[in-house]
Design a binder for these strands. Sequence first.
DNA 1: TGAATAGTGTCTGTAAGACACTATTAG
DNA 2: CTAATAGTGTCTTACAGACACTATTCA
Lengths: 238, 238
Amino acid sequence: MGYNPRDYPPVAVTVDVVALTIRDRRLNVLIVERGVQPYLGHWALPGGFVRPDENLDDAAVRELGEETGLGIRPAHLEQLGSYGTPERDPRMRVVSIAYLAFGPDLPDPMAGSDAAEAVWHPVDDLPPLAFDHERILNDGIERARSKLEYTPLATAFLPGTFTVSELRLIYESVWGTALHAGNFHRKVLSVPGFVEGTGETTQTGGPKGGPRAKLYTAGDAKLLHPALLRPSREEEIR
Amino acid sequence: MGYNPRDYPPVAVTVDVVALTIRDRRLNVLIVERGVQPYLGHWALPGGFVRPDENLDDAAVRELGEETGLGIRPAHLEQLGSYGTPERDPRMRVVSIAYLAFGPDLPDPMAGSDAAEAVWHPVDDLPPLAFDHERILNDGIERARSKLEYTPLATAFLPGTFTVSELRLIYESVWGTALHAGNFHRKVLSVPGFVEGTGETTQTGGPKGGPRAKLYTAGDAKLLHPALLRPSREEEIR
DNA sequence: TGAATAGTGTCTGTAAGACACTATTAG
DNA sequence: CTAATAGTGTCTTACAGACACTATTCA
């Protein structure tokens, strides 16, 4: 019956970004210490208001750069979901579009505009987060775990060339499980388009010995077929 | 830099729903003929503005009911994604949260508040849709196809009890491919928690002959393990 | 030299798909 | 009766995981 949005209090739209990387074999997320109210001084996911005439994706990339002072261009960026519970922001009605980003390990970011500090932090040892950001982060981690199964996006956590062992460490860090090195090796090379050999090898063996490893780049596959499934999780099925 | 959203023109948040069902062995989507500007008289997905203090999920359910005059409670409802291109609505900046709904075949809906008419329509034979609703619909269909692979949600298209053949018809309709009846049968029964036998059978055989079929209800599995994968789509992998 | 790692060989159990076949029902 | 459908048996191939093993490099 002629519902007119201008008759109602305004709604704000924000983006929040779950930016993940692997550091020291652990899954890390980028968090910022808020420099403004509300939740001033609390840790939160980087994010902020979408500007007029700005695409949602662009806003996510902009906030990632602004709040961290880094020219971060994540190797992968995808939409995660929308979070719009009426009370999630004490200021006003805020609907947030969450994004999920993967990137290779980067130097520690500096604080940016609205953030007092920005750091990479292991996801299994986090301080409390502002708003509903813990829920968003959990959704992002679960999405990441699932994406590694059926897409080649694990390579987005790595530099341009990498070894199969480095790729395995990504899977082990994100899934939190140890994988059998030999079987993983054969499996990765058998999936068409997952990785492509460069003909090169590492210049040295591992720090504690071992032969030089062949170097690979990401292949052209968009999906892994057959998929690389996580070790069975009976409990999670029902 | 104290960006304040109140300094800028307002943003509106809407929900749009891709409601799918199977009719006569074809995948159908619920569309409405718009009774208001813009796109008056055009076909569109049901949807509308989110109200203050209303959850996004609740808004999706409400719009589904309001615009169709049906007390539709979809058997499954999930968030599909957000669509926020600045020019997608000529009136103002509108960010839409799209939802995906599955339900069993229902009688033809009546028109509701903002819609001149509401109908189920086969997805492969649609009139042009308003806004960016064709893109949203395509994303929804692809999501539905994928969901059938690794979740038991095909049962959401069926009434409380059903036969394995009816379940197979859901897969065939959504995927658009013929499946081998015998192998499908064995596969479905072998996945733990997918379906549960009731001990009953249909009262008659098929309209053109055949024995009575056993009746099943949806099981308690949340994920299919092992998954029921679509016949290989080599082209879609790269 | 010994320890660690890269990469391969082989075997087993499970699952997917092709195909054949029996049993039951409608017309 | 015939045609259609429900459901099962069986065979082949592919693949995941377990395990063993060789080769290469660092300390």
